[in-house]
Design a protein around this nucleic acid. Sequence first.
DNA 1: TCATTAACACGGG
DNA 2: CCCGTGTTAATGA
Length: 210
Amino acid sequence: MIEELNSNYGHFFEKELLEEISKDSITKEVLEGDILIKPGSYIKSMPLIINGAIKILREDQEGDELLLYFLEKGDTCAMTLSCCMGHHKSEIKAIAEMDSTLIMIPIKKMEEWTAKYSSWRSFVFESYHKRLMEAIEAIDNIAFLNMDERLLKYLKDKIKVNSDTIVHNTHQEIAYDLHTSRVVISRLLKKLEVDGRIELNRNSIKVISL
DNA sequence: TCATTAACACGGG
DNA sequence: CCCGTGTTAATGA
């Protein structure tokens, strides 16, 4: 575990903290599609992402969803931080975007490290800041971009976090993430295909240029 | 004008 | 047959 920690978080945490993390935490493998956090749930431990990606969504009472952002290696979940520290319920839903490896840190240790390590404190603040910026960007996207621009952004994000130019999603799944209807996604994707920017297949989209 | 909803046809697995 | 896709018509914001 220590090597993975080092390569992803070594520049952030000092040696003693890295050793404490590897001693007190457990590695967890999650599979694509696994629901990691449900809205309204309390959280018992905090994840550090070693590899893979986690999709963070906002969900309303009817179960309608909206994609907020992705977490990648080197990231942690800011919602989890506030949940653990303040004992609040989760406001978001987290789903594994792909098979991923996480390191789970017990809440108790987090409090201890906050007192003990300044690098831990900066990491927590930095995480909050990063996620707040992502959340603001998500708001900007909804407020100021048309659906075709949002779709382009979505495809770009997808190929980035998956490091794969083929997006393995159905039109319906994309529609859920962007909180719109499949008709719209199908139409916009078709237009992109006609323009030669993507290639459409059943269950997947090959990105040519965006 | 553009999104949504419902409906339908097509076709691949 | 089931599901994903492409398209259209009606309705509304």
